[in-house]
């Protein structure tokens, strides 16, 4: 378990770091998907199989695909990728990396008081009955939020369609 965690977390961090620094969107998104899958493994390692499953399905499955779809719709030109590549020098990452390191260090420092171990996996039944027991209102609200997101996306997209239909 511990070994799995360390391997998976190291992989996740490395894949995420590479993923956000790719010039080509598709490359970046593939590494991102890898990182997300690795995080799914981390979830398994800390004893949260339901979370791991959903995580992989939603993030690696739905969200990354959504990103890829956006890349497809936007259409990427080679000159744009080339321009992106010239912008991405190590200098561009220097400042953000320093800030992010400070942030991470502070977060670690802030979480120092936490102690304890991760041993027993929480049963799926417990999670499920919590979701559909005391947290049912939250679940419904989450559903509403997704529905609102759907409507918003639909509206944002529709105008474009109308414009193109007029053009036809």
């Amino acid at each position: 378990m511990v070994v799995t965690f360390y391997i998976a977390s190291a992989l996740a961090l490395a894949a995420a770091a590479v993923g956000i620094s790719r010039a080509h969107p598709i490359h970046g998104l593939l590494f991102l998907a890898l990182a997300l899958v690795a995080v799914g493994v981390v979830f398994l390692a800390v004893g949260a199989p339901l979370v791991a499953a959903f995580h992989v399905i939603v993030y690696a499955g739905a969200i990354v695909v959504l990103f890829l779809f956006a890349v497809m719709v936007a259409g990427l030109s080679a000159p744009a990728v080339a321009a992106e590549r010239t912008r991405l020098s190590w200098r561009a990452f220097l400042g953000p990396a320093l800030l992010a390191a400070a942030l991470a260090w502070l977060l670690i420092a802030a979480s120092r008081p936490a102690s304890g171990a991760v041993e027993e996996p929480v049963p799926i039944v417990t999670v499920a009955s919590a979701l559909f027991g005391p947290y049912i209102a939250g679940v419904l609200l989450a559903g509403l939020l997704l529905f609102a997101g759907l409507i918003a996306t639909h509206h944002l997209a529709r105008r474009d369609d109308a414009a193109t239909e007029e053009q036809r």
């Binding site: 956000i20 620094s21 953000p96 800030l99 992010a100 390191a101």
Partner: peptide, 9 residues
Amino acid sequence: GVGAAGLLA
């Protein structure tokens, strides 16, 4: 932190 670095950079 990695995510924040990407966001800023």
